[in-house]
């Protein structure tokens, strides 16, 4: 691979930061969920890149990435259910309106 490891890391960092910004500022709960998915994808790119550059034969990073994907799928499924549940009960999915736990 001619592209150096650092460039993969920087790509991953950029996407992670974009995702983080989204998770912090999106009002729509679905939007937050999508931003989180972005962050998870960025982490996966990191893992796979390290796997390729540090221990190309063992593929450990790829295994981790598979676990992360499984968790991402699980979180989306549960997130979907929670969003639907909240929407049904409160008629809103704006994250800053959902403050039931506040004092």
């Amino acid at each position: 691979m001619i592209v150096p490891l650092a460039h993969f890391l920087i790509l991953s960092l950029i996407i992670f930061c974009i995702g983080l910004y989204g998770a912090l500022t999106r009002r729509n709960a679905v939007g937050i969920l999508m931003s989180v998915e972005l962050m998870l994808n960025a982490a996966n790119i990191n893992l796979v890149a390290f796997s390729r550059f540090v221990s190309p034969q063992s593929g450990t990073g790829q295994i981790f990435a598979v676990f992360v994907m499984a968790l991402a799928a699980a979180s989306v499924a549960v997130g979907l259910a929670i969003v639907i549940c909240i929407y049904r009960n409160h008629r809103t999915i704006a994250a800053d309106k959902i403050d039931l736990m506040k004092w």
Partner: peptide, 17 residues
């Protein structure tokens, strides 16, 4: 002191970051 507890999850995440 109460201001810290906004109940808005994204505020908490921001502090985390």
């Amino acid at each position: 002191v109460r201001l810290v507890q906004t109940g808005i999850i994204q505020n908490y995440i921001l502090l985390l970051v």
